[in-house]
Design a protein around this nucleic acid. Structure first.
Length: 561
RNA sequence: GGUCCUGUAACUCAGCCUGGAUAGAGUGCUAGCCUUCUAAGCUAGAAGUCGCAGGUUCAAAUCCUGCCAGGGCCGCCA
């Protein structure tokens, strides 16, 4: 429709249609029209006032109107176009009915996306939930656009951190196990990390012991390796449980830091030969990124051992080769912005750079400040899910719904996850989130449960209204038109979310869509109305669209609440 | 010190990419609406120097520069 209007206008002034189309906007108010053409830019060219041009253009266009446009009017410097709502309604019902918003086929790339990349020395916390929510959502959006997604993950399973947990366990663990204590494995291991921090304050000697432990691990000491394996397996088991509950999608490949922390040296040697890197006086190998404003960065230690960036260079290349990727994305917090800038710059200089992006998200902080797993001021993922699930449980019970306990549990969990995921995804990923556990996550207004509720209401109508009255579009009410228009723009929103890698656009859309549905719900009864046939179709179009939209956010729906 | 991100209603945020017609939501507050498809809902109202100051433009919350405030990063840790 927009294109047709652009053609119409461009003909009048002999302008490129594309240019006109990019100027067309949507009026701030529905009564003005559905599309508007501002005449400011023409004013200069024609040396006439924009108001005069608008008046002139309106008169000209009125002479040979276009099918589908019911009115053309002038308002100040704008020419407004009112489109025929019956045609809109027909096209929306057709669009949604045909394929229920299947894949859009706009891109066809192989994209690798890395998340959540946990450390094995601590339990998952809200920050990880943000990471997972973003990763899942961007994967889903990318898939919906037509891309093939490879979900990869890295386990940071070695190093000084886990060594500290090991020391603490040896000294204070007394043969305890997660089973014996009735604690999830990841939390169990994390607790020893906290014990270490506390004890090391009293006894600095422990830091040295941790370092020694790391050396023992690196030299392959049998006893150390066994303990390390045992503690990591506890952590993995615990984390896997949380992943399953929260709905982390299947990981195509797990990479382990312990298996590749020494790799990447050949890349460094290659770069040294090609004079991309240079040897410093003391033997360390570095790169000068002063021009890029990133300073000098050492890429291999003087003693010839690898560091973080060495390993990451290796892994970046390996991953591209493993999956023949066109693009490689990393969902990692913004505290690593510098690291990724350096990493990508080096890859570019080495000539192995593909389309690589650091999907950098803001930290989740507590009102009291940054979360610290060292000191225990953390909101654990499991605790959060449990608390909010209990809130949902209470709400369902209060309503007096007569269903089996198992079903109540299922609904409570889905509601809780919707609340958490939505609250994390509706905010721009760049922004820091101040997470107040006291307020927890609300169930009213702009929340996940509101979306689920809207969906359940729509489903309820579909279940209850069984008649097969003909679909007749007579006189559309304001609420119906608004809902139709919102459904109509769904593909554009998805595309925009992909371009900007912004799941919050989908979240915002889901809420706006649901809000319009609830307004429709209150003013347009379906059952027994004259428009029953059409409204039933409209309700279903909404339902299908919201479901798809929530799918993209990784949020499961409920047919009944 | 250098660099990146953020600053919009009492609170939490959308809008900024791609500048346009009275700056939008939610929460909270005030007042209404359940004998009709789920009140986790709907309707109405009060509430804003879009951090500050310049600049570009016919037009700036939106683009540019400077400043202020909060946070991150700048390690031969990961």
């Amino acid at each position: 429709m927009k294109k047709e209007i652009a053609k119409l206008v461009s003909k009048e002034y002999n302008l490129p249609t594309k240019e006109v189309e990019s100027l067309i906007e949507i009026p701030p108010n529905d009564e003005l029209g559905d599309y508007a053409f501002p005449c400011f830019s023409l004013a200069k060219k024609l040396k006439k006032s924009p108001i005069e041009i608008a008046e002139d253009l309106t008169n000209k266009l009125r002479k040979n109107p276009l099918e589908g446009i019911s009115n053309i009017s002038q308002a100040g410097s704008y020419v407004n176009f009112l489109i025929d709502k019956k045609i809109l309604a027909e096209s929306v019902l057709k669009e949604v009915g045909k394929k229920s918003w299947g894949t859009l086929n706009l891109e066809n790339k192989k994209i690798g996306i890395e998340y959540p990349g946990p450390n094995t020395n601590k339990a998952l916390h809200v920050g990880h939930l943000r990471n997972i929510s973003i990763g899942e959502s961007l994967s889903n959006i990318s898939k919906a656009i037509g891309n093939k997604i490879f979900h990869v993950n890295i386990y940071n399973d070695r190093g000084i951190l886990i060594s500290k947990s090991m020391i603490a366990y040896e000294k204070f663990g007394k043969g305890k196990t997660p089973e014996s204590e009735g604690i999830k494995g990841d939390k169990f291991v994390g607790q020893f990390y906290q014990i270490f921090t506390k004890e090391a304050e009293k006894n600095p000697q422990l830091e040295e012991e941790a370092m020694k432990k790391l050396n023992l691990w690196e030299s392959g000491d049998k006893e150390t390796i066994n303990l390390w394996k045992k503690m990591n397996s506890w952590a993995y088991k615990g984390m896997q449980e949380t992943f399953n509950t929260f709905g982390l999608s299947k990981i195509d490949k797990n990479y382990y830091e312990s298996e590749m922390y020494e790799f990447g040296k050949n890349i460094i040697q290659d770069g040294l030969k090609r004079k991309i890197f240079y040897k410093k006086e003391d033997g360390a190998i570095a790169i000068d990124l002063g021009k890029e404003g990133l300073g000098e960065k050492v890429v291999l230690r003087a003693d010839g051992t690898s560091i973080y960036i060495t390993q990451d260079l290796y892994l970046a290349e390996k991953r591209i080769n493993d999956f023949k990727l066109d693009s490689s994305y990393y969902v990692v917090g913004n505290d690593q912005d510098y690291h990724f800038k350096v990493l990508f710059k080096i890859l570019e200089k080495l000539g192995i750079k593909k389309d690589m992006k650091h999907l950098s998200y803001g930290m989740v902080a507590l009102p009291s400040g940054k979360m610290k797993s060292r000191t225990g001021t953390t909101v654990y993922a499991d605790d959060l899910i449990e608390d909010i699930k209990n809130l949902a449980l209470r709400k369902i019970t209060e309503r007096g719904v007569k269903i089996q306990k198992k079903e109540i549990e299922r609904r409570a969990l889905i509601t809780a996850l919707a609340a958490i995921k939505y609250s994390l995804l509706k905010i721009d990923i760049k922004k820091q989130i101040i997470f107040d556990p006291k307020e927890a996550v609300s169930f009213e207004g702009d929340t996940g449960p509101y979306l689920l509720y809207s969906y359940a209401r729509a489903s309820s109508i579909i279940r209850k209204v069984k008649s097969k009255k003909p679909v007749k579009i007579v006189d559309l009410k304001e609420q119906e038109i608004k809902l139709l228009k919102k459904i109509d723009i769904f593909p554009k929103i998805v595309q925009n979310a992909q371009t900007n890698l912004a799941p919050n656009l989908i979240a915002n859309y889901s809420f706006e869509l649901s809000k319009l549905f609830n307004e429709f719900y209150h003013s347009c009864p379906v059952m027994g109305s004259m428009e029953e046939g059409f409204r039933l179709k409209l309700v279903n179009a909404f339902r299908v669209t919201l479901k798809k939209s929530l799918d993209l956010l990784g949020i499961e729906v409920l047919e009944e609440m």
